[in-house]
Design a protein around this nucleic acid. Structure first.
Lengths: 213, 213
DNA sequence: CTTGATAGTCACCAGACAGTGACATTGTCA
DNA sequence: TGACAATGTCACTGTCTGGTGACTATCAAG
């Protein structure tokens, strides 16, 4: 795209357009992390980047475009390696219940360890608009991939696996997002690591119980 | 409080203050239901009520006070009767797993049938402020009561019941709120009644499996 | 040097917001 | 009747928002 500051063609890079674009994209992340998605607006992001807001329109055709670029940039969602523990072969060698249990635990930990991901999750959760649409594609793909891998070579007609995925995913998403907002849920302190060990144990127990140990 | 438009004392009710308060409180509900909590502001609510916004400050000492009054008004959370199916005695006569399963299903249905409750749930979810604080007390009480009733006379040291409640409650809350925003979750259409039957069945299965049938 | 394109700045617009002070209207009591 | 308090209306402030048009500064090519 660029990287040709000299000679023929490439009339851009007068004052480094790409650097400015990067500053804007990074500013989105900082605002999102520090002030939450409510604060993600043209004015705030531009101020954070130390750049004029009009450049958001010129370079990204508006805030949704900038957010889309931001979404393309970062690794907000766990990839397959992370979810299956790094080794696909070893993962596939496990019994099905074991596989599911591991993937669930890794998904929980992955979401919990990504503040920006939790913020995006909450965002998408309650605002359906141009901005959040941009962030959703990557997640949908990641989700589908892990389900496909976990269920690979398995034929369990006795269990409604999609329904199981929905319930587990919903519980994890809710708790992860909730952790940032309200530290107590149904009497348990979500800011206490011990609580999360109990939740992990419970998820594990549920998966095994439903899948028949 | 009022109901004494004539004679001694009660210097108010010149132009019916109570009626105006009621109009404001009802306007909160309408705005919340129609436009979501993002729209709940002094200007919008006053406009909806057909009343000047200054009265919100005079009568409720600001928007948080009005929202608190609104929260006190409506029945947003299911009560014990609804959760246990109407008959406490019959409920308590059931085996524990049966009791839990029933309460979980009734809670899911209760939340799903209350659009305003779902909106409040989402609101509280992502905005922690004076407004949402007012809405939370009632919910916490309702939650604690049902857990107490379901666990009455039961001593299951083999299961981490609070963790189970947390996971189930989180899943239900997430799905109920999600239904309004994004109709598809993990591949299942949340606007299809058949999906909810599958979710109910899965929750039931999980409860029974974990509690040992 | 001139031309032209691009990068970046600045000032402004209209609309929504929360909040406040001054005013008019109405009813009750003395 | 007059005094007073309460109800309700109106106009206004200042601040934020998203968005746009006009400007300057810089660079490359002819």
């Amino acid at each position: 795209m660029n990287a040709a500051p000299r000679k023929t063609t490439a009339p851009a890079t007068a004052k480094d357009r790409e650097a400015t674009k990067r500053r804007l994209i990074e500013a989105v992340g900082r605002v999102l992390a520090r002030q939450g998605f409510q604060a993600v607006g043209v004015n705030t992001v531009a101020r954070e980047a130390g750049v004029d807001k009009v450049l958001i329109y010129r370079y990204f055709d508006g805030l949704p475009g900038l957010v889309a670029a931001f979404a393309r940039e970062g690794s907000f969602w766990p990839d397959l390696d992370e979810l299956c523990g790094g080794d696909h072969q070893a993962f596939l060698a496990l019994p099905f219940a074991e596989r599911m249990s591991l993937a669930v635990r890794n998904y929980l930990r992955a979401v919990r360890s990504r503040p920006l991901t939790r913020e995006i999750l909450a965002w998408r959760f309650l605002e359906k608009n141009d901005l959040t649409d941009a962030l959703d594609t990557a997640r949908a793909e990641a989700g589908a991939a892990i389900l496909a891998l976990a269920g690979q070579g398995v034929d369990r007609t006795d269990v409604d696996l999609p329904a199981l995925h929905v319930v587990l995913g919903a519980a994890i998403n809710h708790l992860a997002v909730r952790q940032d907002r309200e530290p107590v849920f149904a009497g348990l302190p979500l800011d206490d690591p011990a609580t999360w060990e109990r939740v992990e144990a419970m998820l594990d127990r549920m998966v095994r119980a439903v899948l028949g140990e």
